[in-house]
Amino acid sequence: MTDSTGVSEVERFLYDEAALLDGGRLDDWLALFTDDATYWIPLEAGQQDQLTSASIVFDDRRLLGIRVAQFTHPRAHARMPAPRTVHQVGNVRVLADDGHELRVRSTLVMIEFRRERQRTWGATVEHRLRRIPDGLRIAAKRVDLVNAEGELDGIVAIF
């Protein structure tokens, strides 16, 4: 399914998601996730396990809600001011589609600016997207940062 400009439904969804993040519309972004969703940034390359291996982020929907709420609190010091970002989504590939859920892999280049410092991030992203009557929702999102195993300054941007 592509629109008149040749952009597929899946690509459109990922671009819209990126636009919500870049626009700071975190509540709308959160609404893209299903109630049973997970949002995962592994600590190690190729990490398989979420429960007995630590993760940069491993949020269920409840924890992700807390993260987003925290982000908007007036005393969220590391997010005041919030980072300005550009999420560049590319190389979108549908790996599997069983009619109910799709597994989609893409690459992300993200530029972040905050407090006189610009940071560049690169990641491979895997979405598990669930079809619902009015479109798609995120059932799981995994973000593998290329520098996940590095010595990193605190991460406040959302991928």
Binding site: I41, L51, S55, V57, V156
Partner: peptide, 21 residues
């Protein structure tokens, strides 16, 4: 591990506010 993620995770709101200060 769940505790580590929340308290020591590099993107933890708790940790990042400490680092910011």
């Amino acid at each position: 591990i769940a505790f580590a993620n929340v308290v020591n995770g590099t993107a933890s709101p708790v940790l990042t506010d400490d680092l910011e200060v």
